[in-house]
Design a protein around this nucleic acid. Structure first.
Lengths: 338, 338
DNA sequence: GCGTTCACCGTTAGCGTTAACGGAATTACA
DNA sequence: TGTAATTCCGTTAACGCTAACGGTGAACGC
């Protein structure tokens, strides 16, 4: 910078002003400096700028794990939204290890990043409040547990999505619909279960306890619960899995038992992960706009960083039903009525 | 740091020495300072350290796109390997846009990051050489095109993997094996095709031109080529898809035509993406150790950053055959021989 | 007693940038 | 013409840390 300044016959301060697009520089001087900068290919040391300004140009994305394609969608949205802002995306995974979770708190709050987007499964209220106290701007995405008050977050309309999925099954004629939930400690799982119940009740049906099963959002649990459902005296005609991964577990179990989808039983999922259209039969599911959620989180975070007010502390983006081939009208009962 | 120093009754320099684990500090002093640091939760300003040392503690991971679960595996490996090193992972995607690709070059080479891991599909020899000239350490992962000389890279044994997949099909008794290749411009696609041919020839078979089809690594191309194969006068008894995504395309086409896997036709893929075990039937495929490749890239990069010599400029990690349920012996011919 | 070596620690200075202030030149206005 | 406001730019001093060097005291050898 000194060199540029010398070449332009001004002080480094003036160069700094030009680079920061400050108004108080004469147009001629500005132009000359800009030209010199362009010619020399000069770039400011970010480290020095960061030290001086206290801004690093880095956004942390902290995720629970990098195991699921689900997270990739969010990353994609965040990356896209961040790209034009000049901020750079720093990714770290906690893998649920307590030690690492402490570490990110330390890392984030040491002024090393300018803001954070957190995608964490379990409630971390205490840690989140600690972060808040430190003044680090952050946004929680798809938080699936109890949040403390005033924690900015982005989610999806889990309740409405689950209801519409259930309504769709009802509209096909299903009456015995099973539901395999996610981990009951997670907020989104509760919302989906609740949406499911609401739809049934709106149709004048009572959810049968046998047909509402707990799950873990993992493949195995979809598999196991489906086997259990098939062993029931009166198995369901449709299964609503709390997420796509469990729906794939259903597929596995149904295949093992020789039950065809959707002829003998219908399956519907939640999330619309990338492979949902690729499995056989292509999975009908409730699309969660994960990339959009990531994008939205970025825009909220920007506001927080800039000190602008938020329109809303909690934002829920709309889910949508994606109809593919895994649902059909229920198989006719043994004594078909014409 | 000043405060810590004051509390310990030493100068900030001594604190710095302790934090940098320098040897020339009396054990007692060191212990006291360590304790004070732990108590106060003090963390050094990375910006200041970065400025002073010229190291930022950031590693760039530049990927072509964040669309495929394939990339997630690599990210996971890189993240895991990077975690204990204290380096932080910065992710950016070029999405194949020329402008962005120029940008990462600029960003990486402006001293902002300490090194880069590049996962780029197409040959970018010119850019890579430019990076090299700037002296930024970098490693290329799974590069699928022509690399310039002396470019450190990590890949997989595509040729051997394809050969073993083919040998497996041969061992099951298949003789009419189709191959759906990846984009012919990509090195890994060429290698896989070549491995396929080698296995056939080793078995004394000649690849039939009709059964060796071009592809694009995308789902559609697996689908279309499979339909074309089925329309052949003598369709194959097995299909080797150049990657898992295309194998899923095969599944779709086969299902549409009512051809069952693996009874009527066997399908084998390449990559072993996360969903490969979840589809129905679970896909037999060649596992590419993507996470390991990411990890290995990190260790290579570390050496480069530290100025240590590399054991090898090009490293290829072993692929392995993962047998699941999508392959079986070929259906008996019309006139079964006892 | 004096030099030498070693272990430990402090001082100085500066990394590259910018906030804050101030000063000079120019313009605006009474 | 004088004063105030405005525009433009330079000076100073940090931001938090550490490289390089220097200094102190103790231990040791001659």
């Amino acid at each position: 910078m000194r060199e540029i300044a010398a070449a332009a016959g001004v002080s480094p301060m003036t160069v700094s002003r030009v680079l920061n697009k400050r108004p108080d520089v004469a147009p001629g001087t500005r132009h000359k400096i800009e030209q010199l900068v362009a010619e020399s290919g000069f770039v400011r040391s970010r480290a020095a700028t960061a030290m001086r300004k206290g801004r690093h140009g880095l956004i942390d994305l902290v995720v629970l794990s990098l195991d699921s394609p689900y997270i990739l969608e969010i990353i994609r949205g965040v990356e896209e939204a961040l790209e034009p802002t000049g901020f750079r995306l720093v990714i770290s995974a906690t893998n649920g290890e307590d030690q690492r979770e402490r570490q990110w708190l330390a890392k984030i709050s040491d002024g090393w990043t300018d803001g954070a987007i957190l995608v964490l499964a379990q409630g971390q209220s205490a840690r989140l409040q600690a972060l808040r106290r430190r003044g680090t701007p952050f946004v929680v995405v798809d938080h699936q547990g109890e949040l403390g008050p005033h924690i900015p977050s982005v989610g999806a309309t889990n309740w409405a999505g689950a209801r519409s999925a259930t309504e769709y099954l009802l509209s096909l004629g299903h009456r015995r619909i099973a539901f395999i939930g996610g981990s009951p400690t997670l907020g989104c799982a509760q919302e989906r279960a609740s949406g499911f119940r609401a739809a049934l009740e709106a149709a004048g049906l009572v959810p049968e306890p046998d047909l509402v099963r707990p799950g873990t959002f993992m493949h195995e649990s979809g598999y196991e619960q489906t086997l259990a459902l098939l062993d029931l005296p009166r198995p369901p005609t449709a299964i609503f899995a709390g997420n796509d991964t469990m729906a794939f577990g259903c597929y596995s179990a149904l295949r093992e038992r020789g039950v065809t989808v959707p002829d003998a039983i219908s399956v519907i999922g939640f999330d619309d992960v990338l492979v949902a259209p690729l499995v056989i039969p292509p999975l009908t599911t409730v699309r969660q706009p994960l990339a959009d959620m990531g994008r939205f989180a970025v825009s909220m975070l920007q506001r927080l960083i800039d000190g602008r007010p938020l329109d809303a502390v909690r934002v829920e983006l709309a889910t949508s039903l994606v109809v593919r081939d895994s649902c059909a009208a229920p198989a006719p009962p043994k004594r078909p009525r014409p």
